[in-house]
């Protein structure tokens, strides 16, 4: 009884999914989260800029000790991962299940590289004595990149759930896949701003 009910509900769900081009992708609650998250990060970025303008020399000096190479590689890693997520979502929309699984798998591999690279970036810094207590730049750096890293790890969990849905559901939930995808793009977007503010800005 409840099984047939579930399958009916599922069919209704599938019909309501925005298969049409131009429809609003993902769940509305995720958009609430993304817009709010961008506002919160935005407030932190403004605070960072304000404090940076108070002691520009300290900030610039510490910033120049940043490993821009690792930062750039991380940017490429995340952008590539995001590309695979976008292609994977397209594949799900086109009902190409095997392709979408392969693409999301690649996205997760690239996404998982990010925390590994972060460890290789943080550990030498901490070993060299550049801890959050050294100055305000480093405090901002560890707090903000740490917060972003938390988002990456959460994103990997979400991508895992997306892949499970594609693999196990008879009809993959396109709206859920899109929800995961837009979250992952937000993580990407935040990193681009972080990279610009903490590594590149002069």
């Amino acid at each position: 009884m409840s099984n047939t009910l579930e399958s009916v509900v599922h069919k209704v769900d599938v019909r309501e999914q925005p298969q049409v081009v131009g429809a609003f992708p993902g769940q509305p609650s995720m958009w609430f989260f993304i817009i709010g998250d961008l506002l919160i990060f935005g407030a932190y970025f403004i605070a960072y800029m304000a404090y940076r303008s108070q002691e520009p020399d300290v900030f610039l000096q510490s910033q120049q000790a940043m490993n821009q190479g690792v930062g750039a590689i991380n940017t490429i890693v995340l952008l590539t991962s995001s590309l695979f997520v976008a292609l994977g979502t397209e594949a799900v929309r086109a009902q190409k299940i095997r392709d979408s699984l392969r693409l999301f798998g690649l996205a997760m591999v690239f996404g998982a590289l990010f925390p590994v690279l972060k460890i290789f970036e943080w550990l030498p810094k901490i070993e060299a004595g550049h801890t959050p207590g050294e100055n305000l730049y480093l405090m901002f750096y560890y707090v903000m990149t740490g917060l972003h890293l938390f988002h990456v790890l959460l994103g990997l969990v979400i991508l895992g759930f997306v892949m499970r849905n594609i693999k196990t559901a008879a009809n993959p939930d396109v709206r859920f896949v899109e929800t995961g995808a837009i979250y992952w793009h937000m993580v990407d977007l935040l990193w681009l701003v972080l990279f610009a503010l903490f590594y590149l800005m002069r």
Binding site: G36, I40, Y51, T131, G133, M139, V143, F150
Partner: peptide, 24 residues
């Protein structure tokens, strides 16, 4: 989701163990 922001920003308070002045 709002609750997620709430508990994540609470973790930020860890900085009070390091900074004695300033925003943290």
């Amino acid at each position: 989701y709002y609750t997620v922001w709430q508990f994540v920003t609470e973790l930020f308070a860890a900085t009070v163990w390091i900074a004695k002045t300033g925003p943290f």
